[in-house]
Design a protein around this nucleic acid. Structure first.
Lengths: 150, 150
DNA sequence: CGATATTAGTTTCATTCGTAACTATTTGCA
DNA sequence: TGCAAATAGTTACGAATGAAACTAATATCG
């Protein structure tokens, strides 16, 4: 396998490229499992996923937990509200702050999507040994802490 | 740390989500290192990267090596042609097939971007021990082979 | 109290992206 | 040969995305 020793990049060996291709492939496969069936986009699903875990978050808290930006959250929330998958009211103390939660319908969909998403993750993790799974988790923990801004 | 044992997802522990966030963060950081400076988008850079390694590829071969689809390649190639960073002629045997290569100007830019890209990768890899680097490579090798299509 | 700054969330606009349809060329095979 | 199918690449179009400007509500501080 060609290495990046001279002034050239072998894309196939380049970590950022490999992560990008792998991640896109996995996300696409999972989204294919629910997008058409539930008319649900990836950003919408992410919003539902955090609200399934914890209710009554503000849009900003959803953004924080999903690593989405506030515009993306706003759009996803509005589409979910239109589809009656979310309920929103506003905090009495601060009328700007929204308080978001899954509706019954949203919860039902959440309960259906969860096994699909976990199924795909399982399909991947099942191919790894216990040691490899451990290594993967610990590498991700470490990589997530790395500061990149020049 | 909350685990995915019940019918819920802890996004922060969910492998596809973690990969996606990590990969986007890294790609964004690297792109910030060349996009503005060279007026170069990520897909354009990917095309240049493969042609820097190997010249006279067709658009389809570029697509294959970059994991981009043919439309994205077509667009990137056309922008690079307009900017005189690429040269294109067509195969005499098959007038449909393009033969792409970096221009001198493209090569010069390639030579400038390479160290930026490798620098970011190095910044990440330097935080890992030799054993961790080995584990990462072997995990990626393995994960890349996994079949996901339901 | 009242002006200014900050914060939450939305809207706008320009760009990007993906899918599907299209053109041109070549291949295969009756 | 010659016509249908396949292939290389482009175009068209609607949806998704991101940055910046905007609105409304609250906080700060003279």
């Amino acid at each position: 396998m060609k290495k990046n020793i001279e002034n050239a990049i072998c894309l196939a060996d380049f970590l950022p490229y490999r992560l990008s291709v792998l991640s896109n492939r996995i996300s696409r496969a999972i989204a294919d499992g629910y997008e058409e069936k539930f008319q649900l986009t990836l950003p919408e699903w992410r919003v539902m996923a955090v609200l399934g875990e914890e209710s009554d978050l503000s849009a900003a808290q959803v953004a924080e937990r999903t690593a989405m930006d506030k515009v993306a959250v706003s759009r996803a929330v509005n589409k979910l509200l239109e589809a009656d998958r979310l309920e929103r009211h506003f905090s009495p103390e601060d009328k700007r702050r929204s308080v978001l939660a899954l509706s019954n319908e949203g919860r039902a969909i959440y309960n259906e999507v969860i096994p699909i998403a976990l199924g795909y993750e399982g399909k991947i993790l099942d191919k790894l040994s216990a040691v490899e799974k451990e290594a993967l988790t610990s590498l991700l923990d470490k990589l997530e802490t790395i500061q990149l801004q020049a």
